[in-house]
Amino acid sequence: MSSVWQRWRDKTPQSEREYQQQIDPLRAAAPVPVLWLFGKTGSGKSSVIHFLTGAEQATIGEGFRPETKASRRFDFPDSTDPLMTFLDTRGLGEAAYDPIEDIAAYSQTTQLMIVTVRVSDHALVDVLEPLRRIRRATPQRPVLLVLTCLHESTGAIDLSEGIDPFDAPPASEDPAAAEPLPPIPAELQTLIDRKSEQFAGLYDHLVPVDLTRLEDGFADPEFGGRRLRQAILQYLPHAYRQSMLSLASDAQQHRSKRQRRARWQILASSSLAATAGAVPVPWVDIPVVLAIQSHLAIRLGKIYEQELTASHWAALSSAAGSRIATRMALREVLKLIPWVGMAAGAASAFAFTYALGMSWDWYFASLHQGRAPSVDKLREIFADELQRGHELWKAE
């Protein structure tokens, strides 16, 4: 197997530009999800991004760059290997906004529009008028209406304490047997009903949320976040659904900035590998998947400030051992079976890349902390993470 991994290393793209040239056709076939955030300044757009990604507010602010005259773009975690892209329309309610340029730029490139509105905001003409024009231009694109800052209309009542009054019982559960939901405060319900009327015909799904800061003192600072994530997941490609689910799971664990950055990179590469793995022609995707995985190793090494020497490459390649060749051969044979092969290829590429990334993450973290990583332990971690990768792919 050493000769296989030697060829794998030798085919590593020599530059970011070369790597981008290799994967651009993949992104054209299955583009990274682009979410168009539409709302006035202070309506909660950054809070939505922070909740979905776990990125710090400062990182989000620094990550935006101009896209059109009125809008800006944020690739998460970066523009080289993004998991998702956010477009933010600025200036609504502050100056006349003409959506013509944005309609031309985003009509065919955005999968979902998220309109954020403070539930107690009544001055919405500057949002409604351009939104009507955008909706007419691309009626097939889903629109989520996200009502924010619910606490501004609930007085002393903390909606996030106890059962969520906006929760619907599971489809498999008898509504009559389900525990009754607490009432929604009358003033808040009136405001929600009013927003529903104002935006009638302009949205597909309404989601009330209250994404607050820890210091604000609410029982759940991410109130409604789970419902928002589930609504978004309905419209994402499968590979990126799994990445968002994993991001949500990872957010529950306390990690350093370096660890979070590494995991974002692993998920981005795994999602891209899944796209390559779905190519329904046997053996066509293997060089691309290997390029993605080798690029991942290089990026992880840089995150942990480790230079990849020949001995490091040898250790990294030992993580999977002969599993790689065996699984890849089986996966390519399965591709001869229509549809089944595509699913098997995508799942396998996602799980393998995820497992490799997580085991390499442990390896580089050990080196960074001055520990000598064991090859046996590296293989053990790979086996555990391979199972985890398959579980993530199957998760809903």
Rank of each mutant, 00 (worst) to 15 (best):
Q140S: 10
T148V: 10
S153F: 02
R194S: 10
R132A: 15
E152N: 04
D174G: 06
V209F: 06
R213F: 09
A219D: 09
A168C: 08
S269W: 00
H238C: 03
L191H: 12
Q252E: 14
A239I: 06
M244S: 04
E161R: 13
L128W: 07
E129Q: 14
V146I: 09
S153K: 07
E197W: 02
I266H: 01
A251F: 02
Q140W: 04
A168G: 03
A231C: 09
L202V: 07
Q242M: 14
H238E: 13
Q259T: 08
P180K: 03
D158A: 12
P180A: 04
S270I: 11
L245R: 14
Q265F: 04
Q140F: 02
S271N: 08
A200L: 14
S160K: 05
D210E: 07
V207Q: 10
Q140G: 00
R229L: 15
D164S: 05
K195A: 14
P130T: 13
S270P: 01
D193G: 00
L188W: 06
L272N: 00
P170T: 01
T190K: 14
A186N: 09
Q198D: 15
H151P: 01
V127K: 04
D250A: 09
I232W: 10
I184G: 01
R226M: 03
L191N: 09
R241P: 00
L128P: 00
S246F: 13
I163M: 12
Q265G: 13
A137K: 13
A177C: 02
I157Y: 14
S243D: 11
R132D: 03
G162S: 04
F218G: 02
R227E: 09
S196P: 00
P237D: 11
F199T: 10
R263C: 03
S160N: 09
R227F: 03
A137S: 15
D174W: 08
E129H: 11
R194A: 11
A186V: 11
P139K: 05
I232H: 12
L233D: 01
R255D: 08
Y203S: 07
A239E: 14
A248D: 11
Q234R: 14
L206M: 15
V143R: 13
S160T: 05
F223L: 08
L211A: 12
T154E: 09
D174C: 12
S153N: 04
A200Q: 15
S256M: 07
R226P: 00
E173M: 15
D167C: 03
A231R: 01
P139C: 10
D210Q: 13
L128N: 00
R260V: 01
V146H: 01
P208M: 09
L181F: 01
D250Y: 06
P208G: 10
P169Y: 12
I232G: 11
T212Q: 15
G155W: 11
A273W: 08
E161H: 12
E197K: 10
P170S: 02
E215W: 11
Q265Y: 05
R213N: 12
D174L: 06
W264T: 00
R255N: 07
Q259L: 08
R213A: 13
F166H: 08
F218R: 12
G201D: 08
L247A: 06
